[in-house]
Simulated scan of single mutants.
Amino acid sequence: MSALSAVLPILATVVLFLHGLQGFTRELQSCGEPLMRAWLQRLTANRWKGFAVGAVATAVVQSSSAITALTVALVNASLLSFRASLAVLLGANVGTTATAWLVSFQLSGLGPVLIVLGAVMAVLPLRVRTAGRLLFQLGLILFALQLMTAQLHPLREQPWVAAWLAAAADPWLQVLVGMTITALVQSSSVTSGVAIVLVQQGMLPVEAAIAMVIGANVGSCSTALIASAAMGPIARVTAVVNLLFNAVGMLILLPFLVPFARAVAAAVGDPGMAVALAHLTFNLAISALFLPMLGPVGAWAEKWLMRSGHTCRAG
């Protein structure tokens, strides 16, 4: 089996997984974006509510990219204050770990059932059509994971895979890999999902998989940066501060990454769940660090923008 012939089907399953995630997000946005906008505008009166809204909305939509881009757009339109948006973005980082938990529970066997059930419901009248489309996309996500697992399983005995595993053992390199893949595909969910499947198949050490999802956290900030590029200065600063949160958290963790990963793996036992738990723990730690500091961060951003000749609605 050549490397190319083995890798192409795996890449196809990753694309299918990404397509399912994007489809699920689109379906939810098409029927729920006005509600999400209302939530973000009305329920962000304080940082704790904003954090909760960001976490719940991202967990439901299965896309931190969609929530962060929407948040930056609301800040740009002066419909959401700068400081409230930061709490939402911290919550979105926590909410995006829902995909990792979904993959770690190994529910991929439900994929074909949900695809068929969703397809039947989608052709029926009334409101069940929307639910049917959502079930279909969720089934597609799970079915893609099932196919990915099946394609990866035979590769464990290949010599070139063993060589790749030796190189992948460096967690610092895996942080960079996670950042790069996420920035390219614009989805941290894909990176975390693939990392968990690899570790479940014994093709990636737990430490390297955890490093990948930590890197994916930073790579996911690229969506907000790209979305804000054509917007006003306050939107761009919002995206930069979102990157700052994740980058600072990653730099703090990096010297302790290996012992942290080993401690989580020893505590949980199941390697897939260990990756999901480490992902959640990392984002909760970032939130615990920065949520009490949103006032000073907002004040710093105001001074930064004022020096640049702009005004900031940080309230």
Rank of each mutant, 00 (worst) to 15 (best):
S2K: 09
S5T: 13
L8S: 05
L8H: 04
P9M: 01
L11V: 06
V15P: 10
L16C: 05
L18F: 05
Q22H: 13
T25M: 02
T25A: 03
G32R: 02
M36V: 15
A38R: 14
W39P: 00
W48K: 10
G50N: 09
G50H: 00
V53W: 02
A55E: 01
T58M: 04
T58V: 10
T58I: 08
A59L: 07
A59V: 03
T68M: 15
L70I: 11
T71L: 01
A73E: 10
L74E: 01
L74M: 11
F82R: 01
R83A: 02
V88W: 01
T96Y: 01
A98R: 00
G109Y: 09
G111W: 04
I115Q: 12
L117R: 05
L117H: 05
V120G: 05
A122S: 15
V123N: 10
V123A: 13
L124V: 11
L124C: 14
L124M: 13
L126W: 08
L126M: 13
A131I: 09
A131N: 12
G132Q: 07
L134Y: 12
F136I: 07
Q137W: 14
G139P: 00
L142D: 02
Q151A: 13
Q151T: 07
L152Y: 03
H153L: 12
R156H: 11
E157V: 12
W160Y: 15
A163Q: 15
A163S: 14
P171Y: 05
Q174C: 15
M179Y: 04
M179Q: 05
T180G: 09
I181F: 12
I181V: 15
T182N: 03
S187V: 03
S187W: 07
S188I: 10
V190N: 00
V190K: 03
S192W: 00
I196L: 13
V197K: 01
V197D: 04
P205D: 10
V206A: 14
A209N: 03
I210D: 04
M212G: 06
I214M: 15
A216C: 09
N217S: 13
G219A: 10
C221I: 07
S222W: 15
S222C: 07
L225A: 10
A230C: 08
M231R: 12
I234L: 09
I234R: 01
A235H: 02
T238H: 07
V240I: 15
N242T: 09
V248C: 08
G249D: 06
P255L: 10
P255R: 11
F256T: 12
L257M: 09
A266Q: 14
V275L: 10
A276Y: 00
L280S: 09
T281F: 06
A285W: 13
I286V: 15
F290K: 04
G298E: 01
K303S: 11
G309S: 12
G309N: 11
R313T: 08
A314R: 02
